[in-house]
């Protein structure tokens, strides 16, 4: 996808209109600094994150950890890897690590491990100060973030933490809903039988409710703030 500065400008305008906080970073350092400042300002202790090539590219996890922030990977495979000290571990070793982390005896079987991971992570999302996810692309006309996934962790990391920050590649912005649909149709489902990925979320602005009089644009049940960090790296 080609860089389109017009799309970035439109995107910024529309996303701001619906209550998102936008920052465009021209360098990795700017991006990291924005997040570090946010973490400091909000006194965030724990971050949950989903798989993100952009985060890896700017060394985000290491930077956060160096600043004393606990970073928890939320895709189960990465979560296990993190528990296992960053390497591939055999099933019994994984079960043992989970058992010692949770205090429950876990059998060294994938199903038992999956169940345990679901249980642990469920509580983790809601207790995290910040959720960091990566959007697959943005939609300029509405300031929307689009994320495609099969696991469901990204949508939980986007919905449950106190604050949510999305990384968006400045090169990955489409004009409108029609182009978004085209792009989705060209994305393989990734699971047999799926023509499209299991979960596709269009996130447009900060969650709101009009149900309480006098609190028209108040935060509803999702994060208190939606940050969008566009990486337009030179």
């Amino acid at each position: 996808m080609a860089v389109n500065p017009e799309y970035i400008e439109r995107y910024k305008k529309e996303a701001a209109r619906v209550g998102s906080k936008i920052f465009v970073a021209a360098t990795a350092e700017e991006a990291v600094n924005y997040i570090l400042a946010l973490v400091k300002e909000k006194n965030i202790q724990t971050v949950v994150k989903s798989d993100s090539a952009l985060a890896a590219g700017i060394g985000l996890r290491e930077q956060l950890e160096n600043n004393g922030v606990r970073v928890i990977e939320t895709s189960i495979v990465q979560w296990i890897r993190q528990l296992s000290g960053g390497r591939e571990a055999p099933l019994d070793e994984i079960a043992a690590s989970i058992s010692s982390a949770t205090g429950e005896k876990i059998e060294p079987k994938p199903e038992a491990i999956l169940k345990a991971a679901r249980r642990v992570l469920k509580d983790t999302y809601a207790n995290a100060g910040l959720g960091i996810t990566q959007a697959d692309f943005g939609i300029a006309e509405s300031g929307t973030l689009v994320s495609l996934e099969n696991e469901g962790n990204a949508r939980l990391a986007a919905a449950l933490p106190h604050i949510h920050l999305t990384l968006l590649d400045g090169n990955c912005i489409v004009a409108n809903l029609a182009e978004a649909a085209e792009r989705i149709k060209n994305t393989a489902g990734g699971i047999p039988g799926h023509k499209v990925p299991t979960f596709i979320t269009y996130l447009t602005g900060r969650n709101t409710t009009g149900d309480i009089p006098g609190a028209l644009f108040a935060r509803a049940q999702g994060p208190e703030e939606e940050h969008i960090l566009i990486l337009a790296l030179q």
Binding site: E14, V18, S75, I76, V77, I80, P90, L91, I94, P110, I113, L114, A117, E141, S142, T144, E149, N150, E151, G152, N153, R155, A159, I184, G189, I191, G193, H194, K195, V196, P197, T198, F199, I200, T201, Y202, L203, T204, G205, R206, N207, T208, G222
Partner: peptide, 23 residues
């Protein structure tokens, strides 16, 4: 223009696999 969350759900998901067994 759009509702805050527009969610497309297709079937059930997967978390990849461990040891070749799908989650």
């Amino acid at each position: 223009r759009l509702t805050v969350y527009t969610s497309f759900i297709t079937g059930t998901g997967s978390a990849g696999d461990i040891g070749g067994i799908p989650l």
